[in-house]
Design a protein around this nucleic acid. Structure first.
Length: 580
RNA sequence: GCCCCGGUGGCGCAGCGGUAGCGCAGCCGAUUUGUAAUCGGCCGGUCGUCGGUUCGAUUCCGACCCGGGGCUCCA
């Protein structure tokens, strides 16, 4: 399901003007109800608009209602939007006392027009882009208010933002609100509880507990990745959880990342819980002498990571403080970068196709101002990444200056149910770790050389991946990932014994089957299995018992009719196999 | 970290100065039923924590913890 359907550009333009205009009307209403409010900015957004105000106190839901009512009046009056150009001095005079608007005017480049737009008696500094009159704002709804920093900088004062949505017709708005509602039903936090996959407890904030069902899914993902690793030439290591801060000082985390780490003191020695696997990988690399013949060396590590995320930034499974990644570090020569990245991206594409993540977005982040490593190596590395993407036909955006100080990277983003994008996969070249840990290998000529390190994760954090996967599938995992793959539904008590045989046979064949022998009616058992998104329901009654069969129903509501147990077993064994 | 909102049995909610109720789930009993909820009964809550106001607090106030919507952050 694509997060945003394409709409025709003309309609998009009308919506944008309408929403921008709605923001003006909102500002007008707030100004009339709260004369002391200072106006700042109010742009249209993808599906609505907002306006930020500097006010004495935050808005309450009741305020929003009053504001909405005043807006409706203004729209009813159908005031024309009129734009006028003013001189800078005039503009400064018009906004005096409002530091925000002054700042905006100061930011307008010399030679550019400074304009104000008015409707009725309200006027606001504005570069234009409105509908003809307020009456053209067909429908709108104020949705919420929230704090937001001026210019998005937390050192600046906090403003109060009001969010709204506006559409060309009540139907369009209704459809939009409906979409939001539907998306909420897919929220992985809600589904995680309903499907009994995971939960949180205040005793360990932002650290998920996986129940047997959730743990099964996570483990299954790991098994799947391990299967790929075998084919793609990786080996796996297991490393410690906690290291003396000596290691973090050496790796640079102590200087740059310590505020995000869990640190403790034991026996007068300071330790840090690992937030990343790389230093441990470096130690594994150093644990033996390495020759150019050993490269590329691909070391996978599913180690659990802990990061102290600031309170207020965590979100369900998608942003947690305890997680594990399908992480690996590849040690190779500069000339091998392209080959390694190609292999990785190929594997990533293969796996995303398996999960149906067709809308993945790739970004290529290039050298920042502050960086380490020679220009020559950056040239080679960036060229390698870019050529691999081009060669594999991957669409990507370039983000100049966005690379890490230690190397360029490719990130892969996938949207959740409401279109928020989450970074899952990543490949980061690292010219730093070799130096810091004094990593080397012996080359053909016997010289000691530094390997390049490639950090890479495919599914990324398994927790986050699961969260996004739940939203994509609405909890209906592919059969091979389903914690319960089939439920046997006896119609009456006299079918329970046979039902148990059916279940045991499937269990013996490696299918995760359950028997629902409760005193409920068949309908209720089916409903329960449906709600739990169990892919197969095997109904057994007199006829099936007689025939050594089960009536097969799928969670899509399809009734496949009676099938022999042999047939069912073959089908389920096939469908529950981990893809490869 | 910042602004706002919220925390009542496993889950979803109501109540809001006189120590709590509903639905679902669970348990027990009855029912034995052909593709999304059979009926009846029962159990279950120190109303997030700590402190204050009050004769009396789940209800009011404060602090803290946790969650949510945003902002910031995500070397």
């Amino acid at each position: 399901m694509s997060p945003r359907a394409k709409v025709d550009p003309q309609l998009e333009d009308v919506r944008k003007r309408m929403r921008h205009s709605a923001a003006h009307v909102l500002a007008e209403a707030v100004t009339s109800l709260f004369p002391e409010a200072k106006l700042t900015i109010g742009p249209p957004t993808d599906d609505g608009f907002y306006y930020d105000f500097d006010v004495e106190r935050p808005f309450t839901p009741e305020d929003l209602e009053r504001i909405g009512a005043v807006m409706r009046k203004s729209i009813h009056s159908n005031h024309k939007f009129v734009e006028r150009e003013v001189t800078r001095d005039e503009a400064m005079g018009l906004v005096k006392g409002n530091r925000y608007k002054l700042e905006i005017i100061e930011g307008i480049p010399e030679g550019e027009r400074v304009t104000f737009t008015s409707h009725g008696t309200f006027e606001d500094l504005c570069r234009g882009g409105h509908v003809g009159s307020t009456g053209e704002i067909k429908v709108f709804k104020l949705l919420s208010s929230a704090g937001a920093y001026w210019r998005g900088d937390e050192r600046n004062p906090m403003l109060q933002r009001i969010y709204g949505t506006a559409w060309e017709s009540p139907q369009a708005q209704e459809a939009h609100l409906k979409r939001i509602e539907e998306a909420e039903k897919r929220d992985h936090r809600k589904l995680g509880r309903e499907l009994k996959l995971f939960f949180f407890d205040p005793i360990a904030p932002a650290m998920p507990f996986f129940t047997p069902r959730g743990a099964f899914v996570v483990n299954r993902l790991v098994e799947y990745v391990r299967g790929l690793y075998t084919r793609y030439g990786y080996t796996e290591v297991i490393t410690p959880q906690i290291f003396s801060t000596d290691l973090w000082k050496r790796s640079g985390h102590y200087d740059n990342y310590i505020e995000n780490m869990f640190v403790m003191e034991i026996d007068e020695r300071e330790y840090g819980v690992k937030p990343m696997n790389c230093p441990a990988a470096a130690l594994v690399y150093k644990s033996d002498t390495r020759s150019y013949r050993d490269l590329p060396l691909r070391l996978a590590d599913f180690g659990r990571l802990h990061r102290y995320e600031r309170s207020g930034v965590t979100l369900g499974l998608t942003r947690v403080r305890s997680f594990s990644q399908d992480d690996a570090h590849i040690y190779c020569r500069v000339e091998q970068i392209a080959q390694e990245v190609r292999g990785f991206i190929t594997m990533l594409q293969e796996s995303y196709a398996v999960f149906g993540f067709n809308e993945a977005r790739f970004t290529l982040s290039l050298r920042p101002e502050k960086r380490m490593g020679s220009d020559e190596i950056w040239d080679k590395a960036e060229a390698a990444l870019e050529s691999v993407l081009a060669e594999l036909g991957v669409d990507f955006e370039k983000n100049p200056g966005e690379g890490a100080f230690y190397g360029p990277k490719i990130d892969v983003f996938v949207p959740d149910a409401i279109g928020r994008e989450w970074q899952l996969g990543t490949v980061q070249l690292d010219f730093n770790q070799g130096e810091r840990f004094d990593l080397e290998y012996q080359s053909e000529g016997g010289a000691r050389e530094r390997p390049v390190v490639i950090h890479r994760a495919m599914l990324g954090s398994l927790e986050r991946f699961l969260g996004v996967l739940i939203e994509h599938t609405v909890g209906a995992f592919p059969v091979w990932l389903s914690p319960v793959q089939a439920v046997v539904v006896p119609i009456a008590d006299r079918h329970n014994a046979y039902g148990m045989q059916v279940r045991d046979r499937l269990l013996a064949a490696g299918v995760r089957a359950e028997l629902n022998d409760s005193a409920e009616r068949m309908q209720a058992k089916i409903r329960d299995a449906q709600l739990q998104k169990v892919p197969y329901m095997l109904v057994v009654g007199d006829r099936e018992m007689e025939a050594g069969a089960a009536a097969v129903r799928t969670r899509t509501g399809e009734n496949l009719g009676a099938m022999s147990l042999d047939e069912i077993q073959v089908r389920l064994v096939k469908e529950t196999a981990i893809p490869r």
